[in-house]
C-alpha cells in the first residue's frame, strides 16, 4: 500500500470507529442508571430507595438546568398541586416561635443525623426571613415582610401553606424541597413555619 492509500484507509477506519463508539443518549441514560446503582450504598436512615425518582424528579432532571416547556410545567404543577394535603381542622397558622426554630434547624434526614433527632427545614440556608438573622442564603428570594406585603387573608395563608407543603405545585422544578409532600416536616411543623411567614406578630413581618 502506498502512503496515500494507507492514509485514506486510516481515515475511513477512524470514521467508522467514531460512529461505532459515540454513545447515544439512550446508552448514556442506561449507563447512568447502572452507575447510580453501583456508586451508592445505604447508610443510616438513607436507603437506596432515595435514588428512585418520582415523575417530578425525573422530568426536572432531564431538563439539565433548562426551564420546562409550558406543557411540562403545567403537568408537573398539576401533579404536585393535587397532592397537597391541607389540615383537617382548617387551621393553617401554628406558633411562629417554633417556626423560627424550624427555619434555623439545618439537621434532619442526613445519614449522619440521628433518626430520632431534630428535623428542620433549614429555611435560612436559602432565604432571608427575620431581619435579625444576618446569616441567610440567596438561593431563594427574600421572605422578609412576606405577610405584610401580601396581606394576612385566608387565600394568602392557603398559598403559603401549600407552597411550603409542595413548592412545585406553584413552580415546576423549583429548587425548594417539598417539605410536606416528602415527609420532611409534619403537619404541626408546617403550620408553625406558615405562621413564621403569615403571623402579624412574627419578626418576619416587623
Amino acid at each position: 500500500m502506498n502512503g496515500r492509500e494507507s492514509l485514506v484507509s486510516l481515515a475511513l477506519l477512524s470514521i467508522t470507529l467514531g460512529c461505532a463508539t459515540a454513545p447515544s443518549s439512550e446508552e448514556i441514560a442506561a449507563n447512568a442508571a447502572a452507575m447510580l446503582k453501583s456508586s451508592f450504598k445505604a447508610n443510616g436512615q438513607a436507603s437506596l430507595d432515595r435514588l428512585k425518582q418520582d415523575e417530578t424528579q425525573a422530568l426536572c432532571s432531564q431538563l439539565a438546568g433548562k426551564p420546562p416547556s409550558k406543557e411540562v410545567a403545567a403537568r408537573i404543577e398539576k401533579i404536585n398541586r393535587d397532592a397537597i394535603k391541607y389540615p383537617a381542622d382548617g387551621k393553617l397558622l401554628g406558633d411562629w416561635k417554633n417556626g423560627e426554630k424550624i427555619a434555623q434547624e439545618g439537621r434532619g434526614k442526613q445519614f449522619s443525623d440521628d433518626p430520632a433527632g431534630p428535623v428542620g427545614a433549614n429555611c435560612y440556608a436559602c432565604h432571608q426571613l427575620a431581619p435579625q438573622e444576618l446569616s441567610f442564603g440567596t438561593i431563594g428570594p427574600s421572605l422578609y415582610q412576606f405577610g405584610k406585603l401580601r396581606g394576612y387573608g385566608a387565600d394568602t395563608q392557603r398559598y403559603a401553606y401549600g407552597k411550603i407543603y409542595n413548592s412545585e405545585a406553584y413552580a415546576a422544578c423549583s429548587n425548594m424541597p417539598r417539605f410536606g409532600h416528602s415527609g420532611i416536616l409534619n403537619e404541626q411543623q408546617l403550620k408553625d413555619v406558615t405562621a413564621l411567614l403569615m403571623d402579624p406578630q412574627s419578626p418576619v413581618n416587623k
Binding site: A29, K109, G137, P177
Partner: peptide, 30 residues
C-alpha cells in the same frame, strides 16, 4: 455521565448538584 449525575434530582429534598451550583451569585447561608 458526570453531567447527567450533576442534574440528577433525588432524595427527600429533591436536591441535585445543580440545586446549589447551577447559578451565578448565590450563597447558602453565608
Amino acid at each position: 455521565l458526570g453531567e447527567k449525575m450533576f442534574y440528577f434530582r433525588g432524595g427527600p429534598h429533591d436536591f441535585a448538584c445543580a440545586t446549589c451550583h447551577g447559578e451565578d451569585g448565590k450563597r447558602i447561608r453565608l
